[in-house]
Amino acid sequence: MSDDKLVGIVLVSHSAEVAASVAELAKGLAGGATAVPVAPAGGTEGGGLGTSAELISAAAASVDRGAGVAVLTDLGSAVLTVKALLAEGDELPEGTRLVDAPFVEGAVAAVVTAAAGADLDAVEAAAAEAYSYRKA
């Protein structure tokens, strides 16, 4: 627990629709978790497929409540852009972390865990744990 402040969640996808839909799905499956700040950062600023550093920075700033921000990504440039922004040092809020997790399952786990008031370490662990769920 960290002073009742909730961890923020940013969902980065190559597609604006995917990012927004996964955000909606994760919040919906978390039930009464609407208090958790979740922001999608999907596609390019022009509305195309790709990754926008500006949209990621804006999304992270919008969900930062002082308890850290967990960023989940889909693939390729989404991962690399977040890593490059983290290396920059001042582009993302203090306590922003790229979480190594499957995008959809990890988002659900992260939002549910954050809704319980868990700290960033616990949110990260829950999201990463989603990798261990085998489907076949």
């Binding site: 390019t44 990754t51 550093a53 440039s77 690399l80 852009t81 890593k83 490059a84 290396a87 920059e88």
Partner: peptide, 21 residues
């Protein structure tokens, strides 16, 4: 490098951006 990270939109942005930065 910072401009490339911000504007390219594909994986080459953070990669070239990191190279130059």
């Amino acid at each position: 490098g910072r401009q490339l990270i911000s504007t390219v939109g594909g994986a080459s942005g953070p990669l070239y951006g990191t190279l130059l930065r």
